[in-house]
């Protein structure tokens, strides 16, 4: 038992303390959070616009060209692995962009946008149709009805699943090592490749991810509880 503790202690020192390696995890975590945060913002913007495109109808109730374009975008993004999207973005579409973080942010943002758009669409559809009819019957335009009546109510519906999507996105960024960016996962891999010891760096990185996501989950739960309360106002 004592031996076990000693060897674990040694591995711990090697994986975190020696050569100030803990700084690599912190730096990696910074990159992970930076990519996830900005990608989430872009995903939210794209997702909202695409959801509205997808819901747009002509006067006779048929799909518009915008709805079709949005449908194709969602199909393509959901039908391909995100790591391939990242590689294509990096080596093909934005191959001359030297800001690696930006490429990753855009790639993940575009990816997340597809999922967010489906969440937003569901959230909008969940708002009672009568709300739209009431708005339109008062002479408000489609856009005004959306903006002042439907979307504010949809936001309440979509916040919990959007939070979930952000958590998924945060974990998904672990693949940026593929394009030589040093996020938390890659930092752990780097340390493994230096110390030839995989246990501590990988477990350490997992614990960091877990902690961050646990905190996010708790915040989300609080938000949800507050939203539910405001339903009874």
């Amino acid at each position: 038992m004592q031996e076990w503790f000693e060897s674990v202690g040694k591995k711990f020192v090697m994986a975190f303390v020696e050569g100030d390696r803990w700084k690599l995890y912190i730096k990696g975590l910074g990159v992970t959070l930076e990519i996830a945060l900005f990608a989430a913002i872009i995903g939210l913007l794209i997702g909202t616009v695409v959801a509205l495109m997808r819901l747009s109808t002509k006067r006779d109730g048929k799909k518009t060209i915008w709805a079709r374009i949005a449908g194709v975008y969602i199909d393509v993004i959901r039908g391909t692995p995100s790591v391939l999207q990242l590689l294509i973005m990096w080596f093909v579409i934005m191959k001359n962009c030297h800001n690696g973080i930006l490429v990753a942010v855009l790639s993940f943002g575009i990816n997340s946008g597809a999922y967010v758009s489906e969440i937003v669409r569901a959230g909008i559809l969940a708002v009672d149709k009568g709300q739209t009819e009431a708005g339109r019957s008062l002479g408000l335009s489609k856009a005004q009805t959306m903006l002042y009546i439907v979307i504010p109510q949809a936001i309440k519906n979509v916040l919990p699943p959007i939070g979930n999507e952000f958590i998924v996105l945060l974990k998904e960024t672990a693949i940026v090592g593929y394009v030589s960016l040093t996020d938390l996962t890659r930092a752990a891999n780097q340390i493994t490749s230096r110390t030839y010891e995989a246990f501590m760096p990988l477990i350490g990185a997992a614990v960091i991810y877990f902690t961050i996501i646990k905190i996010l989950t708790i915040l989300l739960e609080r938000l949800e509880r507050r939203l539910r309360k405001s339903d009874n106002r």
Binding site: F91, G177, V179, S180, T182, R186
Partner: peptide, 11 residues
């Protein structure tokens, strides 16, 4: 910049 594959580095 550390790549998984050498060809990515050359690209």
């Amino acid at each position: 910049s550390q790549y998984n594959k050498a060809v990515d580095a050359v690209n």
